[in-house]
Design a protein around this nucleic acid. Structure first.
Lengths: 229, 229
DNA sequence: GTATTAAGTGTAAAATTGACATTAATAATT
DNA sequence: AATTATTAATGTCAATTTTACACTTAATAC
């Protein structure tokens, strides 16, 4: 019998989250030092097991909330990893998710208690199991997705400067962008609100703050608009 | 204890394949009429359960081989579907794969024996469970992927005409393309071999046959070449 | 009031895309 | 042998998009 439920093998299903953050130092990921065996003490993605009554998205959300205290976070399912011995304890298939969070909003104390820490994506420790591969793939997907959808704003504070936006894109794409060309491209999209307010931290002159205009973006989406950065 | 293997719930893991084919009638998918409960007699994607000692890619390959007799098929993992009651019998997470096959090569008899059948993507029956959603997402991914990687050739015979290639892209993107612009774009990529041979089926004049030059493509890949169709 | 610092702005050349119509080659028909 | 019918093959120009590039402005610190 080719398809019989009863004879099929059951497996553990895990969720691992690649949590991206961005601050003035660049693009970072949140890693945790495992406090249980195997690989106790080693760095790992934040993860957990799927529960019987839970969908994968919910598991990812729950896990993220547990470790950061955050809700309503942008998440996206990436890929299912299934190498036989990827987890030495027991056959476990892991589904990776990436999350984009505003690094200033997370619960710093909670993270500390869990021995979690932010690492620059280019200067992160070696990770357990196949987590390095998961991160690599997540970065690729982040690059692709930010270039076609305005998800980059999830990584910025509500109000941001053009410089911050530029540096975010430079960090994600890991290449330098021409300031003038970038700004005129962004302006041509007409999906930002320019505020009257200025950020006075970075310069004497001060630079205007912007917010992402989600309504305008969604209105444009209806007319086959594609972000193309 | 947040992460304990022993307390975690195990689930069934299935693989469902969206098998694309292409012939002179257009883009098609291979569906099967289920011969077991639940939903016996209804149309379904071709699928099966993951075995204990098997990685997902291998399960997908095995399932494809079982129903079509084909090996060495282009496959790509798509997404894990995990709605609680997506399968009414038992909690089952399904990982979808898409496969691209040359419709002329498959084992027609095998397919017939399994009550499988090719359907035009725009004229396929309603499917069981969440399989309609899987197909929709697979088509989106196929569109994306064919526009950046030369995987479309997997759907064509070894030797093909420019017209076939054009019609394939039109079918996948489901829009008309300008013949002259398409051909000059393709030629500018320099990844095809133009043969001396002509196909005489379609016209009196006959049209030149081409093959995909994989070596040349991979050579170009090294120089940041991107297909952009 | 002068110096300092990052913000803000425009133009021209190059490359790409998109629209569009005629000629060429061959087999079938007479 | 000439004509017809059918699809294959080919090129140009305008519009748009992308890329490269440098000076002025605003505000504060001294």
């Amino acid at each position: 019998m080719l398809n019989s439920y009863s004879s099929a093998d059951k497996v553990l299903l895990a969720v691992d989250c690649i949590i991206f953050g961005f601050d003035n130092e660049g693009l970072k990921i949140l890693l945790i030092q495992r406090d249980f065996e195997p690989e106790k003490g080693k760095w790992s993605l934040i993860g957990g097991f799927l529960k019987r009554d839970e969908v994968l998205d919910a598991a990812a959300t729950r896990i993220l909330n547990t470790y950061t205290g955050l809700n309503d976070i942008y998440m996206e399912q990436l890929y299912a990893y299934s190498e036989i011995d990827r987890d030495p304890v027991e056959r476990t298939i892991s589904v990776s998710y990436f999350a984009l969070i505003n690094i200033e909003n997370h619960n710093a104390e909670l993270i500390k208690n869990y021995h979690a820490e932010w690492f620059p994506i280019n200067d992160a420790p070696n990770l357990i199991f196949d987590h390095n591969e998961m991160v690599e793939n997540a970065i690729k997907r982040l690059r692709y997705k930010t270039s076609i959808k305005p998800i980059g704003f999830e990584l910025l504070p509500e109000k941001f400067t053009m410089r911050q936006l530029l540096e975010l894109y430079e960090a994600i794409l890991s290449k330098e962008l021409d300031k003038r060309n970038f700004i005129s491209k962004i302006n041509s999209l007409e999906i930002l609100n320019k505020l009257d307010e200025k950020d006075m931290q970075s310069s004497r002159k001060g630079s205007y703050l912007y917010t992402f205009n989600k309504e305008k973006y969604e209105e444009k989406l209806l007319n086959n608009f594609v972000l193309n950065l």
